[in-house]
Structure formats: structure tokens, C-alpha cells
């Protein structure tokens, strides 16, 4: 019972902190990057979808390592699947 009351109290406190921070953020938000992408993305990358323009042109370095992550995952799973194979 004490655990539940403590948990609910902590959750209410976190809700209060988050909501007060969000109301503070509304006045101090910085939209420089967003405005830049919205204005120049079609001209610079040729993509009407801004997300594609970001992950295939501005941040292609990140995308390549993201695909390498999947490759490493597949290699690991295949290794564990083939572990009992006598040819290895």
C-alpha cells in the first residue's frame, strides 16, 4: 500500500514538472532549423518529402551507419542460428 501511494505521488510530481516545463518551452522554442528545412529542402535536395531530404542528403552519414546496424544484427542472428553447424 505504501509502495503504491509513493508511486502515485511520484507520477503526479513528474506530471507537474513535465507540464510546467512544456508551458515554459512554448515561449522559448527555437525554430531556426525547422524554418531552414521547410524553405530550402525542395530546392537543395529535390525531395518534396522533407524527411527523405534529411535522411538521404543532409544526414546520409547517419543513414549509412543505421543500415550497417541492421547488417550486424542479421549477421549475429545468423551466427547464433548456425552455431550447432559442424562446418563452422
Amino acid at each position: 500500500m505504501i509502495k503504491k501511494i509513493t508511486l502515485i505521488g511520484m507520477l503526479i510530481f513528474m506530471l507537474f514538472v513535465f507540464s510546467s516545463n512544456i508551458s515554459w518551452l512554448e515561449d522559448n522554442i527555437d525554430t531556426t532549423t525547422k524554418d531552414y528545412y521547410i524553405e530550402n529542402s525542395l530546392y537543395e535536395t529535390g525531395s518534396r518529402n522533407i524527411v527523405t531530404g534529411i535522411y538521404l542528403d543532409y544526414r546520409l552519414f547517419d543513414s549509412i551507419f543505421e543500415t550497417s546496424l541492421l547488417l550486424i544484427t542479421v549477421s549475429g542472428i545468423t551466427f547464433m542460428y548456425k552455431k550447432d553447424d559442424p562446418t563452422l
Binding site: 529535390g46 525531395s47 527523405t52 541492421l70 542472428i77 545468423t78
Partner: peptide, 30 residues
């Protein structure tokens, strides 16, 4: 021109899409 620059985007999207599809198929097949 925008239509020429889109060739690069379509090519990379196609490569990434085939790679993700092949990877997920390999995982689920195993």
C-alpha cells in the same frame, strides 16, 4: 534540375529498401 537530383534519392531509397527487406527476411527465416 530537381528531376535529375531525384534519381539519386530514388536509387538510394531502392538500395536501402531491398537491403532492409532482405535482412528482415533472413532474420525471420532463421
Amino acid at each position: 534540375a530537381i528531376s535529375f537530383k531525384r534519381i539519386f534519392l530514388v536509387l538510394l531509397n531502392f538500395l536501402i529498401g531491398s537491403k532492409v527487406a532482405i535482412g528482415l527476411v533472413a532474420i525471420f527465416s532463421s
